[in-house]
């Protein structure tokens, strides 16, 4: 569907994107992940034809970005970061304008506008000026803009940034629904977002791809250890440490007093292969201490991300 070959972008002397290769199949939801300034937005802007790459080529279906930018723009729906819409326009007026530019008219246009109003929940705000909308609502109008032509490819730059938790859930829900039929590429620096919505994750750092695989493989492949945290009431630091050290499979233990009075907190690190939670429970049960809490910290994308993108 999308074939990206060695695209590079220079801003003056600064290399924002450095020889990125990417192949995206139809129907994938790809999360482009990276710290701020890694080159995510630049990459997306080249994909959408906002500006041409300094070098390399992008092919969408059989069109090349150099020769048929218009044909590619027809195939792609794009929502830039923070949905920079025309502020002075009314939502309906704006969507109507976009529909016309996208070549819709008459019945087809009305039908599409209706469908999008339902899909993105715009029914109640159609008559409002864009300037007066909250960030979440603007984002939804932006999504409607991007999906106007029912594009085969949807590209979203930080679709949930600046939204409150409820809005984030709503937008993710919409994205997931779209992703059932379309190819979606979204960029974000929020890891949970990728885990929640994307089947495949591409991590970019300093303009280069540092990881590219499906989300599960990536998390599984990097899970080299488990972390378990327990809160125990009535123990003391020294004896809790001794009790836990004797367990097999334990690699490291940190024990310290927790914030609550009389509660000791221990962090236990073990190998990924063995689950030591039953053993920990049994060890505490032998004593007269009370186990208040035990949880396994998911060593997920968070850690992988930090590992792959940390400064050397």
């Amino acid at each position: 569907m999308i074939h990206v070959e060695g695209i590079t972008k220079y801003y003056g002397n600064f290399c924002a994107v450095d020889h990125i290769n990417l192949d995206i199949q139809a129907g994938e939801i790809v999360g482009l992940l990276g710290p701020n300034g890694a080159g995510k937005t630049t990459t997306l802007r080249m994909l959408t034809g906002f500006f041409p790459p300094s070098a390399g080529n992008i092919q969408v279906k059989n069109y090349s970005i150099q020769q048929d930018p218009l044909a590619i723009k027809q195939l792609i729906g794009y929502l830039p970061e923070s949905a920079p819409l025309y502020k002075s326009m009314i939502v309906y007026e704006y969507l109507d304008y976009v529909a016309r530019i996208r070549g819709l008219s008459g019945e087809a246009k009305t039908g599409r506008l209706n469908a999008l109003a339902d899909m993105c929940g715009l029914r109640d705000i159609m008559h409002k000026t864009i300037d007066t909308l909250s960030k979440g609502l603007k984002q939804r109008v932006g999504l409607a803009h991007a999906m106007m032509s029912d594009p085969e490819i949807l590209i979203l730059d930080e679709p949930t940034s600046g939204l409150d938790p409820n809005q984030i859930v709503e937008i993710r829900e919409i994205i997931r629904k779209i992703g059932e039929q379309k190819t979606v590429i979204l960029s974000t620096h929020i890891l949970r977002e990728v885990e929640a919505t994307c089947g495949r994750v591409v991590i970019i750092n300093k303009g280069k791809i540092v990881a590219d695989s499906d989300t599960h493989t990536l998390t599984a492949g990097h899970n080299r250890e488990r972390r378990i945290q327990i809160d125990v009431l009535g123990a003391d630091v020294q004896s809790l440490r001794e009790q836990l050290e004797s367990l097999s499979g334990v690699k490291a233990i940190q024990v310290a007093a927790a914030e609550e009075p009389h509660v000791i907190r221990a962090c236990i690190v073990s190998g990924a292969e063995a689950d030591i939670r039953p053993a920990v429970y049994a060890a505490v049960k032998q004593t007269n201490w009370i186990l208040l809490e035990m949880r396994q910290e998911a060593e997920t994308l968070e850690a992988i991300f930090r590992e792959l993108t940390k400064e050397n």
């Binding site: 802007r45 959408t48 034809g49 906002f50 218009l70 723009k73 027809q74 792609i76 794009y78 830039p80 920079p84 819409l85 025309y86 976009v98 530019i101 996208r102 070549g103 803009h145």
Partner: peptide, 9 residues
């Protein structure tokens, strides 16, 4: 909004 305009066909 220039970005939106330029990414329209």
């Amino acid at each position: 909004s220039y970005e939106l305009l330029l990414t329209l066909p």
